[in-house]
């Protein structure tokens, strides 16, 4: 009964994913290849990691538009640390997650303690952080990442032999995604604070009455999001082998679109890891399909915008309908 229900909830979006995949592979057979799938995986790892953090934020009824500037900042710090401090992997990861967490903490404090609406608070931090990063880097690329780290980034977890001698493999960075998903899963599923995230999203007053501390939970959520962004920044830097301060312009929209597509409610309380991962996959497949079908990349933005508005509109329309048909009096 339990698994049955879970399946039903995410079923529609899985079906959409399948249908769209079929359409794309009919249009271009290159879609249904292992190479393409590994490609999609590699180029969307960062999006997937960040979607976990955004999911948590949206579960509390919040939103974060500063994620792209935070990952840029962390990537710059990471790059600097690699080049000037140490190319030790663990140290690098530590620097990245610490700086991400601090920035997330700042957002959390603004939202929980100063009661600034999340959209306005994160808009402000976005401007501050991005401004600082661009000032320090002057907007130019940072190259000269140590070989040791680049070598690490080239590693594959599993390789698949192919006919033409090329080695296809699951990139090492997949581990970061795995850690992000497992950590998110652990928090949401196994910890009391994780259930508190759902509880305050569902009924904040009751949650408070029950003994949860909403402010603390909100601060935690934004800090954890920063932590995940730290992981994403390391994965990103090891894939790109350089730091481009402009790489993430507008990226927050993609993260939000993927999470919304995965069924998370913008009003908080509803959303699952599985749903979000499928949402991310769907989003990536659509993007990949646009490329494979030679549709200009500008369409991507149009699609992102329409996905956000469309998903929420459907959500709203359904909610209104249930509200309208609610029985108010048990008529004799």
């Amino acid at each position: 009964m339990k698994t049955k229900l879970l399946k039903i909830k995410e079923l529609p979006i899985i079906l959409i994913l399948i249908v769209i995949s079929i359409i794309i592979s009919v249009a271009n057979p290159a879609f249904m290849t292992l190479e393409n799938f590994l490609d999609i995986l590699k180029s969307n790892l960062v999006l997937a990691i960040m979607s976990m953090g955004m999911l948590m934020v949206m579960l509390t009824g919040g939103i974060d538009v500063s994620v792209s500037s935070v990952i840029t900042a962390v990537a710059v710090i990471t790059g600097y640390s690699l080049m000037h401090w140490s190319s030790n992997l663990l140290f690098t990861i530590l620097v990245a997650v610490l700086s991400g967490t601090v920035m997330g903490l700042f957002n959390g404090l603004l939202i929980a303690k100063l009661k600034i609406p999340p959209i306005v608070a994160t808009l402000g931090t976005m401007s501050v952080i991005l401004g600082l990063v661009l000032y320090i880097t002057n907007g130019t690329w940072m190259t000269g990442i140590p070989e040791k780290f680049i070598d690490f980034g080239r590693k594959k977890l599993i390789t698949f032999p192919t006919g033409d001698g090329k080695a296809l493999g699951i990139p090492i960075q997949f581990l970061f995604l795995l850690v992000a998903v497992l950590a998110t899963w652990f928090i949401l599923r196994k910890t009391v604070i994780g259930r508190g995230i759902y509880a305050i999203g569902g009924n904040r007053d009751s949650a408070e009455r029950m003994g949860f501390k909403p402010d603390r939970i909100i601060i935690f959520v934004y800090a954890f999001e920063g932590f995940l962004i730290g992981l994403a920044a390391v994965a990103h830097t090891s894939i790109m082998r350089q730091v481009d301060p402009n790489a993430f312009l507008g990226f927050e929209m993609q993260v939000i679109a993927a999470v919304v597509l995965g069924g998370a409610s913008v009003l908080g309380g509803y959303g699952s890891i599985l749903g979000t991962l499928i949402g991310v996959s769907l989003f990536c497949v659509i993007n990949n399909g646009l490329i494979l079908m030679h549709i200009p990349t500008f369409w991507q933005k149009i699609v992102v915008g329409l996905i956000i508005i469309g998903s929420i509109s459907i959500d709203m329309t359904q909610k209104k309908r249930t509200e309208r048909n609610k029985t108010r009096v048990d008529v004799e």
Binding site: V192, G196, Y198, A199, G202, N203, S206, A207, G211, G269
Partner: peptide
């Protein structure tokens, strides 16, 4: 909590 399971609605308070 409309978004939580029956189980959690009954027993989550204990954990908190």
């Amino acid at each position: 909590f409309p978004n939580l399971s029956v189980m959690e609605n009954i027993a989550l308070e204990q954990s908190v």
